[in-house]
Design a protein around this nucleic acid. Structure first.
Lengths: 288, 288
DNA sequence: CTGAACCTATAGATAAAAGCTATCATTCGC
DNA sequence: GCGAATGATAGCTTTTATCTATAGGTTCAG
């Protein structure tokens, strides 16, 4: 049994004749005659009754036809899938990010430029992002420069100011900036040790010779925000993560290079794949 | 997209590597590399991550694999069907008969020799049998020689005596034979004009110069039997159709060549088809 | 860190088969 | 019956699927 034979049989069965099937398939009529004949001969099965200039499916032919109908339906399906996948008309892009905020511009760009692509975002800490990208579980990773790995290729880098968060009733609320030296002894609420924002902030304090009073360590951005809103202390956050909370006031921190760098990465080896070539254009335009 | 390409992709996906797939498929490894590569290139889709000496399906590859799994399952199904059909391990044989009795030996032979074949029997009058065979609705026809048509090929001929049926209380009951001349004036119950048994009987009467007294004409074998059992008159029937009815006595008819010939036929054009070649051996052994 | 083992990619040659053109044979509407 | 339409057959051509030989990498043991 042969694919050409099955295809010939299917076409003749569908069109109800060899000549009609040949026209429909864009091949010559003898091609179909020979292929169908070969199929019948090799299995010693009659598939068509040749009734003069008409052909009619035998019972066995009908049964085979019911199989080939499903078979060639699946073949069409495979081809449509490949065609769409190649043109990025459909498919899936998976993004692993260490925070929902940084990935938003890329997501918006994909939604706008390639609306057929489904975007799946998984949020986790830096280690989870690294693992996801290395394990082919995500095409794109968003992570801070501290978590960078040489197996990645950097597609874009975004620099975000790190700003001070205060309760809106705080004496400093309303000020546009606070000097880093003013933070000495202030009650601070920070995230866990692995957080790049925290690492960034602490090295800036050290460089300025300031000692902060860390009153609370909480494992998530949202928890820090709630603790600050509740008056437990001051927090630091990357500016895009600030949000629009009325209970929170913000101010720039002066006297230190307090800036976090967020990288958009993909696997180095996948950098030049068709999917990536198209998508990195989008990612590239975001950093400029 | 190509069938060879899909097959190569499927094999590599299933076996988890090019070399393993090549071994499993009995082809060389470069064959698969080239085919898969061609598939990926023509659609600009990555199907495998080449990870050193390991290959892993991409997301797109996984999706395509879920299609090809079903696709090649159907292909196996088609091949199994053809193979079984060709060897008559499975399939259907349709028989059209003008009476259930004559077809029984063939049916028994098929059940014994080819137990995988389903046998479908339709019983009708001669015209229905002729139509069924000519319209490819039955592979075999059983009919009397009178309904013979030159588009048929005769596979076997069975000769059956036509015997007299009487109520068991009839004066002749117990006699083994009755001369045809004794039937003159006797009340006879016959089947419809198209019946071959009737035609046979009437021509025998005419030849012997005997005039029967036809008191009843009934359109079925069973109805004739009931009428005879009810004492309405005498009937004639082919010996194999006689049955074991205690209300009925039977006797041979002497003085005439009262013999019905039942033919086993198929379409002349199908005589040498694979199905027929095998089955006519069975049919042939029955007449001997 | 180095080499053996293993795997995939590439190139050029070969053989299989799928397809075409031309022609014949048969059927069925007119 | 005649002619248009359809399927079958034969011989030739082109495509393509596959092979052998070889190169380029990666992994893992010692």
């Amino acid at each position: 049994m042969n694919h050409a034979q099955l295809k010939a049989f299917h076409a003749v069965a569908r069109e109800g004749g060899f000549t009609a099937a040949a026209r429909a398939q864009g091949v010559s009529q003898p091609t179909l005659t020979v292929q169908v004949r070969a199929l019948e001969d090799s299995y010693k099965v009659e598939l068509f009754h040749r009734r003069g200039r008409r052909v009619v499916l035998t019972r066995a032919g009908e049964e085979l036809f019911s199989i080939t109908r499903r078979l060639f339906q699946l073949e069409r399906e495979a081809e449509e899938f490949l065609r769409a996948e190649g043109k990025l008309l459909r498919g899936q892009v998976r993004i692993a990010a260490d925070g929902p905020f940084h990935a938003l511009p890329l997501i918006r760009a994909i939604r706008r430029e390639l609306p057929g692509l489904e975007v799946v975002v998984s949020v986790g800490n830096s280690a989870a992002v690294v693992r996801a990208v290395l394990n082919y579980e995500a095409e794109f990773g968003f992570l801070s420069e501290y978590a960078m790995d040489n197996r990645f290729a950097v597609l874009a880098a975004a620099h975000h100011r790190i700003v001070l968060m205060m309760p809106s009733g705080h004496p400093w609320a309303g000020r546009s900036s606070v000097d880093i030296n003013e933070l000495g002894g202030q009650p601070m609420i920070l995230r866990e040790k692995g957080s790049s924002t925290r690492r960034n902030f602490e090295s800036a304090l050290k460089e300025a010779g300031v000692t902060a009073n860390i009153v609370l360590e909480i494992g998530s951005r949202e928890a820090v925000r709630e603790a600050v809103a509740g008056g437990l202390g001051l927090g630091v956050v990357q500016e895009p993560e600030l949000g629009e909370d009325a209970r929170i006031a913000a101010a720039a921190i002066e006297g230190a290079a307090l800036q976090a760098t967020e990288l958009t990465v993909c696997l180095e080896e996948r950098r030049h794949s068709p999917l990536m070539r198209r998508l990195t254009q989008l990612a590239g335009t975001l950093s400029g």
